[in-house]
């Protein structure tokens, strides 16, 4: 075999139709010496939901968390490539990751409200940004948008931790959208929720799409078909000893699920491969 035959697979770039808010070009993402993700180009379209699917360890969460520099909190993390956000590379030396995170919010896998009242949880980001307007009105609006207002309007002073898991996750979404971020990153936001809460959060995502750009990591392929406009399928390459994730295919969700170009995608969505 010659060198050309062994060349690494690189997905065809996805040509998004609409405006691109975040253009993520990963060359390599390392944790120490470990190459976690390679060669993946993931454009995130404005006011669309971009779903990231793929088997465990394929790097979809790593890529998502690279989009607002959450991975910087892990000391051995190293990003090679660029993440262009409105034309600026957020990995440029002069960029403050703290400021990036104020524009690109995040909802985590486990609901993680602060040990404060429901009101203070939602007001947290507003106070952080020294919001001068009507705090109560903004908190109410965020809770309404997160479809939680009716359930909590009489107990805003109760601890955020007193809510059920699904309510806590919607509280975290309310907290994330209270500051009106530009983009919302959601890292398996429903994996700790029951089917009813999952449906509520999914409806909420579709609702949020009107105003926000959403990037969503999910293990649940049905969820991707239900909410994502565009889907990126990642896989993990274990052929050369490591476990390196990479983008296999990205396209409109219908095309990915009904007419995938790549054999790997076809096998994954039909359940032949996990």
């Amino acid at each position: 075999m010659n060198a050309i035959a062994e060349a690494l697979f690189v997905a065809e770039p996805f040509q998004a139709a609409g405006d691109i808010v975040i253009d993520c070009n990963v060359n390599n993402i390392f944790y120490g010496d470990f190459l976690a993700v390679r060669d993946s180009t993931v454009p995130i379209e404005k006011k669309k939901i971009t779903g990231f699917i793929g088997p465990s360890g394929c790097g979809k969460s790593t890529v998502l968390r690279s989009l607002n520099r959450m991975n910087d909190l892990i000391s051995a993390f190293r990003f090679e490539g660029s993440v262009m956000y409105h034309g600026q590379d957020i990995y440029a030396k002069k960029v403050d990751p703290v400021v990036v995170r104020r524009y690109i919010g995040m909802v985590f896998q486990q609901p993680n409200p602060f040990s404060m009242s429901i009101f203070d949880n939602v007001a947290f980001g507003l106070r952080l940004n020294r919001f001068k307007g009507d705090l109560e009105e903004r908190v109410e609006r965020a809770l309404k948008r997160a479809a939680l207002w009716k359930e909590v309007k009489d107990k805003l002073k109760n601890s955020g931790l007193s809510l059920s898991g699904g309510q806590q996750q919607r509280l975290c979404i309310a907290r994330a959208i209270a500051t009106e971020p530009d983009v919302l990153l959601m890292d398996e936001p429903c994996s700790a929720l029951d089917p009813i809460a999952t449906r509520q959060v999914e409806e909420l995502m579709l609702e949020l799409k009107q105003n926000y750009t959403v990037a969503l990591v999910t293990h649940n392929m049905q969820q991707a078909t239900r909410v994502a406009d565009t889907t990126a399928f990642f896989s993990v390459d274990i052929s050369r000893g490591g476990r390196t994730g990479y983008l296999v295919e990205m396209g409109p969700t219908r095309q990915i699920f009904e007419a995938p170009r790549e054999q790997l995608t076809k096998e994954y969505i039909s359940g032949e491969f996990s």
Binding site: M70, L73, V98, V100, G105, N112, G125, N129, C172, R175
Partner: peptide, 20 residues
């Protein structure tokens, strides 16, 4: 996960310690 939430909101390390 609470500290992650605070960093995700755009807190500096000082704010994470002071506010959370």
């Amino acid at each position: 996960k609470m500290k992650d939430a605070a960093y995700g909101m755009g807190c500096t390390q000082t704010e994470v310690i002071w506010k959370v």
